[in-house]
Every structure is written in C-alpha cells, then in structure tokens.
C-alpha cells in the first residue's frame, strides 16, 4: 500500500529526514515512533504531499506521489497534528465539504458523511458548530475527515496528543476499529505517529523507529518484545545507542579531518 524509497528532506543544512525507505502492506497498522524532532511529522507530510521530498519518492496504493499526486492524495486520509478544522462550520457541513474536496461522488456523499460520523461517534453533534466542541470531539471530527472518503491509507500524526485518558481510550478504540477489516472489505492501512509507547502496544502490530531523520528500527512488535523486553526499554536503548554512535562517528570524522 505504501512504498517509500530513499525519502530525504533537507531544510538548508538541516537534514530532517535522511534516506528513509519502507514498505507497508495492505491492512497493516504501523506505529511510527521517535523522539521529538526525529522527522516523524516531516515523513508523514512527504507521504501526504504536503511537503515535497528533496530526494526519493513514494507510492501510495500504486500511485507515485510526484508523478500522479492527485490520485495518490485521493488514496490517503490524513489527520495532521492539529486537526484541520473550520471553527465556524458545523460538523455535517464540514465533513460534506471535505468529502467534496476528496472527490466522493455527489450521490454517495451523504452516505459517506453519515458513515464517518457514525464511526467516530459524532451523530449527536452533527449540527453543532466545531468551534464549540470539546477537544476530544474536535479530534474525532479530525479523524472523521480523514476517513470520510474511505481511503486505502490512513496517516495519523499524534492522534491522541492533548486528550484526557478517557478520550485517549476512545480514540484508540476508534483507530483499532478502522484497522480491523469491516463489513467484508479489508481494513485501512494505518501509519500512526506517537511517542506514547503504550499506544503502540495497544493498537500496532509493527513498529518503526526513527531517530535524527534515519530509520533505526523496523519490525513486528511481537518480535521486539519477544524476550520479555518492554518496548520502552527497546526504544530507549536503540535511541540512545544510535545517538552515541552518531556522535562517535562525528568525532571520528572530525579526527580524520584534523589529520
């Protein structure tokens, strides 16, 4: 479903994402981990077409994000870190607007909006103005806009950040439900970024860890925690040893340069 090859993003001298490649199969749920500033958001923004990669490319559901950007974007549902909401619109109007933008045909639009609202538990607030909703409900509207066109791929950037524990559990339940195959069809392919490790353990079957722009770990969750290791320990160990290596490499290079 997702095929990323050599994704690199440079901002001047800063390398935000450095040669990241991965593949995600249909129906997989991948937890995208990494410390703050590791390049998670940038990677997701490249996949969704919000920022172009400096180098490398990706295919979403078989569509290249550079050669066929509109088809690639049609196949993606994206929830950015701040849900992209218009505070003055009501929920149903907003979702109908998004459905139009995402090319849901006119005849299926109402059904798509109703379905997204139902799945995200928004039926009671359909006529409420988004600006008057609580943070948890806004996050649900954000999730609903990501799934309204029933995309093959879902990209969720820290979907539970800033929510209270009950809201977090609800949103997690929603995401887990989206990943499961429903009513005959296959489930959505989901990439979910977070730094809450428990979240990954709760919903994801595969973990991808990036640090300082590079992918340092990629594998099934079960394998990483096989020897009774906690994901937290794995995360800390890999991140810290990677940082140590990087700084060691840096000094080695500096030493070489000095000679």
């Amino acid at each position: 479903m997702i095929e990323a090859r050599g994704l690199t993003k440079r901002y001047g001298d800063l390398v935000a994402v450095n040669d990241v490649s991965f593949e995600v199969g249909s129906g997989e749920v991948v937890g995208f981990l990494g410390p703050n500033g590791a390049g998670k958001t940038t990677t997701m923004r490249i996949l969704t077409g919000f920022v172009p990669a400096t180098d490398g490319t990706a295919k979403i559901a078989g569509h290249d994000i550079f050669e066929d950007p509109l088809a690639a974007r049609r196949a993606i549902g994206y929830l950015p870190e701040t849900p992209p909401l218009y505070p003055e619109m009501d929920v149903a109007h907003y979702l109908t607007y998004v459905a139009r933008l995402k090319d849901v045909p006119r005849g299926r639009r109402k059904g798509a909006v109703d379905r997204a609202m139902e799945r995200c538990g928004l039926a009671d607030v359909r006529r409420r103005v988004i600006g008057s909703l609580s943070k948890g409900y806004r996050q649900r509207v954000g999730l609903a806009q990501a799934i309204v066109h029933d995309p093959a791929v879902l990209i969720l950037d820290e979907p539970t950040v800033g929510l209270d524990p009950i809201q977090i559990r609800e949103i997690r339940g929603l995401i887990a439900g989206l990943a499961d195959s429903q009513e005959g069809g296959t489930g959505h392919t989901v990439i979910l970024s977070t730094h809450i490790l428990a979240e990954v353990e709760a919903i994801c079957r595969r973990v991808m860890l990036i640090n300082a722009g590079r992918k340092v770990l990629d594998g099934p969750l079960a394998e990483l925690t096989r020897d009774g290791q906690r994901l937290e320990d794995v995360f800390t160990r890999v991140t810290l040893s990677d940082q140590a290596e990087a700084s060691a490499g840096g000094t080695a290079e500096a030493a070489e340069a000095a000679q």
Binding site: T48, G49, F50, P69, L70, A71, R73, R74, I76, Y78, P80, T82, P83, P84, L85, Y86, P87, V98, L101, K102, D103, Q145
Partner: peptide, 14 residues
C-alpha cells in the same frame, strides 16, 4: 492559521 492549509494541500485539488 487554522491549519486547514494542510487539508487543502493534501486533498486531490489543484
């Protein structure tokens, strides 16, 4: 400022 730029730019619109 709304963050809706991200919705527009990742939608299949030109």
């Amino acid at each position: 400022t709304n963050g809706t730029q991200e919705l527009l730019m990742t939608s299949p619109i030109t």
